[in-house]
Amino acid sequence: MTRRAPWGVLIIALLMFGSSSHAVQAQAGYSASALYNLANAYARGGKPGLAVLNYERARLLDPTDPDIDANLRHVREAAGLPPESRNGFARVAGIASPRILAWVGVLGILIAGAGAIARLYYPRHRRKLLAATLLGISLLGVTIVSGVALWPIMHESVVITHAAPVRVSPVPIEEPLFVLPEATIVSTSAQHDGFVLVRTSTGRAGWVPSSNLAPIVPKQVDRRRKSG
């Protein structure tokens, strides 16, 4: 009886996690379709920066939707931006939405853990249980790869104004080093006094007024504040 207690705790925790996630989904918030439609509206309104921003957000929720990729590519071309290149990690991350891959990771932990423990109890089925353990580890690996691929997006922003001057320091006194065109995606690393330190895909870095940028993944606090 005492040996079965941890499994009971696990089942209860799983049920609680699932119910809380379901409760979150029921609330108003982001959806891939809504973001995609919003991006289309911005694109038709001649605002490629906000269009790219919402396409990227929609793709974050549904990376398998070909319409998002097609319209994003179209808007980027219309804005005169080079086509984006996706590496192997990004392709792996694009096989399913992060939410599904998160559950796949949980399932992987369950299979790998159960298989490893069962091997101790059932030595006669060690090979079969070893295969199950490896399968669980592989599923967890897919989730980890997806996380690695999406981690840079957590720190990326889109230029939403017509042009964003990039300066060498976070003060608007000196002449800008260069100007970022609208809809450019940059990685951000620091903030200071209303400025954000950005780095372009070509490696050029500088400070941009934060009002010229919008993060692809808004922070939870910001979202709550805005919605509030």
Binding site: S31, N37, R44, L60, G147, V217, P218
Partner: peptide, 21 residues
Amino acid sequence: GLRPDHAAAEARVDSLIPPYF
């Protein structure tokens, strides 16, 4: 060249942050 809008029917999420973050 834009593809048409989608019917927004799926559930919404509170955050764009991937669950594993």
